[in-house]
Amino acid sequence: MKTLSNKFFTTVAVIMSLLIFITPILAMQDDFTAGRIAGEQAGKSKTNGVAWMAIGCLGGLLGVIVAYIYEPSPPASLLLGKSPEYVAAFTDAYKNGAKSVQTKNAWTGCIVSTLLYVVYVVLVVAAAENSVD
């Protein structure tokens, strides 16, 4: 009975000491996750999708390249009062989030402009064939 009681107390003590170490790690993990989610959302919402689609449409492939190169800055106020883990996760995710929207929109613009060009060529060829007939 005494051995069982000792084992019980030992187990409780081990669990409690583990909790003491794990709690701050979990808090850091929470901050990191929150920073990553907020960064991605901010990156996507701060990027003007319409403008990037226009670049893709006007510049063709060049627009896609520009979208890969360009990286917008996050507003400093979003990082105020946040932990280092949050800032690290936010800054990385912001860049990735913004870049994915820019690239997606630029590719869409590029594909749309290519399709329009193909339709234009088909119409011109069809018109030319009709005039020959």
Binding site: S73, P75, A76, S77, L80, P84, V87, A88, T91
Partner: peptide, 13 residues
């Protein structure tokens, strides 16, 4: 510490 270099002026909260 973090040092963030932006391409343009940064908004001042």
């Amino acid at each position: 510490a973090f040092r963030i270099k932006s391409k343009g002026p940064v908004q001042m909260p």
